[in-house]
Computed example of a mutant assay.
Amino acid sequence: MAHEGKADEQLFQLLANLLHQVESLTNQEEVELRTKIEALGLEVTKVPSKSLKQLDELEIAKELDKLSEKLDNVDEMISSAMAADPQVQSLLSDTADIWMPVITASADERRNFTPSVGENSETEANCES
């Protein structure tokens, strides 16, 4: 489970760095986007409460529908940001090899993520420049 937390941490650090780059390039503070990224980070790291009862198939389906709706909203935000700003599209495309595996991986795959030292240093150096 520690690997999963590390992958999440890296993803949200990357998002924060990308947002900082966008803000630097545009000279505009993206308060709403920063708030949404932080809220999503909190949601992802939230530990579910222990349920006293087992969920039945209908309840599980309802929860999956809620999650799908949230993902649709994120997809819509990303799509509109990419359409509105070619720099956003370029940044997302250039960094897809980092964030796509994290958001598309199963829980087991995410646990197996291990960052290599060279990749992490290179990513940080690129984000700082």
Rank of each mutant, 00 (worst) to 15 (best):
M1P: 04
A2N: 07
H3E: 13
E4N: 01
E4D: 04
G5P: 00
K6V: 11
A7I: 03
D8E: 08
D8T: 03
D8A: 05
Q10F: 06
L11I: 01
L11D: 02
F12Q: 03
Q13Y: 06
L14A: 07
L14K: 01
L15C: 07
A16D: 14
A16V: 01
A16T: 11
A16C: 02
N17P: 00
L18S: 07
L18C: 09
L19N: 06
Q21C: 08
V22S: 03
V22F: 13
S24M: 13
L25F: 02
N27V: 02
E29F: 04
E30A: 14
L33F: 08
R34W: 01
E38M: 10
E38I: 14
E38Q: 13
A39M: 08
L40E: 02
L40W: 06
L40R: 05
L42H: 11
L42S: 09
L42K: 14
V44I: 15
P48N: 06
P48F: 02
K50R: 09
S51M: 10
K53F: 12
K53P: 00
Q54A: 15
Q54I: 13
L55T: 01
E57S: 12
E57L: 14
K62R: 08
K62V: 07
K62P: 00
K62T: 03
E63W: 01
K66C: 03
L67S: 04
S68Y: 11
K70I: 08
D72V: 13
N73V: 07
N73D: 13
V74C: 09
E76V: 04
M77V: 08
I78D: 04
S80K: 14
M82N: 03
A83Q: 15
D85G: 01
D85N: 15
D85F: 02
P86Y: 01
P86L: 07
P86V: 09
V88A: 03
L91C: 04
L92H: 07
S93G: 15
D94L: 13
A96C: 03
I98K: 05
W99Y: 10
V102W: 03
I103E: 05
A105Y: 04
S106F: 03
R110T: 05
N112Y: 00
F113G: 05
V117D: 12
G118T: 11
N120E: 14
N120L: 15
E122P: 00
T123P: 00
T123Y: 00
A125E: 09
N126H: 09
C127I: 12
C127N: 11
E128P: 00
S129G: 15
S129A: 06
S129N: 15
